[in-house]
């Protein structure tokens, strides 16, 4: 009976407000400063490339737990022509760890194979409806969002059973539709600039 009750909870619960950019929506463009070299870096959706835009940061343990996995994925898929953009949307005025200097230190020490971009006013995170770090968006060559959610269903490699990000990339590379286009992105809440 007890189990029945908790299983019934989803049916009775109020639907969550889905504020993240929906699958099928046009991805917002951005031009942001890359902490690694101080230069601006632009993403123009519809540039003919499959792109991965993901929100991450310096301080979140869950984002850090996925860092080796994202580096591994980026190295493997950049070789297949896919572009990766890591964006830190956290307010550096409140969290010094998120400054450009500290971002650069982290990117260099970890050997990020992708630009590490500062979303200084958190506007790009808001435009994408990102809530947490890490929060992943896959954009197809025409600029349409085709996957939103987590990297994998577990940060523990031995307990990983669903690989949302690589499944989406493999599907797009094979010109197939993405079977699971939306997953639950867990993580630390984004510290938006107010």
């Amino acid at each position: 009976m007890k189990k029945l009750l908790i299983l019934a909870l989803p049916l009775l619960a109020v639907a969550c407000v889905a504020d993240e950019l929906a699958v099928g929506a046009k991805a917002p463009a951005f031009t942001l400063v890359n902490a690694v070299d101080g230069k601006t870096c632009s993403f123009k959706p519809g540039d003919g490339k499959i792109s991965v835009v993901f929100f991450t940061c310096n301080q979140c343990p869950y984002a850090k737990a996925f860092e080796p996995r994202l580096i591994e994925i980026a190295k493997a898929y950049e070789a297949k022509g896919i572009a990766f953009y890591a964006i830190d949307p956290n307010d550096e005025a409140r969290f010094a760890e998120e400054s450009l200097v500290n971002m650069k230190d982290r990117a260099v020490s970890k050997g990020y194979p992708y630009p590490y971009l500062k979303d200084a006013d958190s506007s790009i995170a808001r435009a994408y409806g990102a809530r947490v770090t890490p929060h992943v968006y896959v954009v197809d060559p025409t600029g349409v969002v085709r996957y939103v959610g987590y990297v994998d269903d577990s940060a523990r490699p031995e307990e990983r059973t669903k690989t949302g990000l690589t499944d989406a990339l493999d599907a797009l590379l094979a010109n197939r539709s993405v079977a699971t286009a939306s997953t639950h992105a867990f993580g630390c809440s984004i510290k938006f600039k107010s």
């Binding site: 909870l9 989803p10 809530r131 987590y150 269903d153 992105a185 867990f186 993580g187």
Partner: peptide, 21 residues
């Protein structure tokens, strides 16, 4: 599994979340 918890409590993964039943 985080998926199972998110489905059971109908939330999107962002914490904290507090629900009253």
């Amino acid at each position: 599994k985080s998926d199972a918890l998110a489905d059971a409590l109908r939330f999107n993964g962002e914490i904290p979340i507090t629900i009253i039943y």
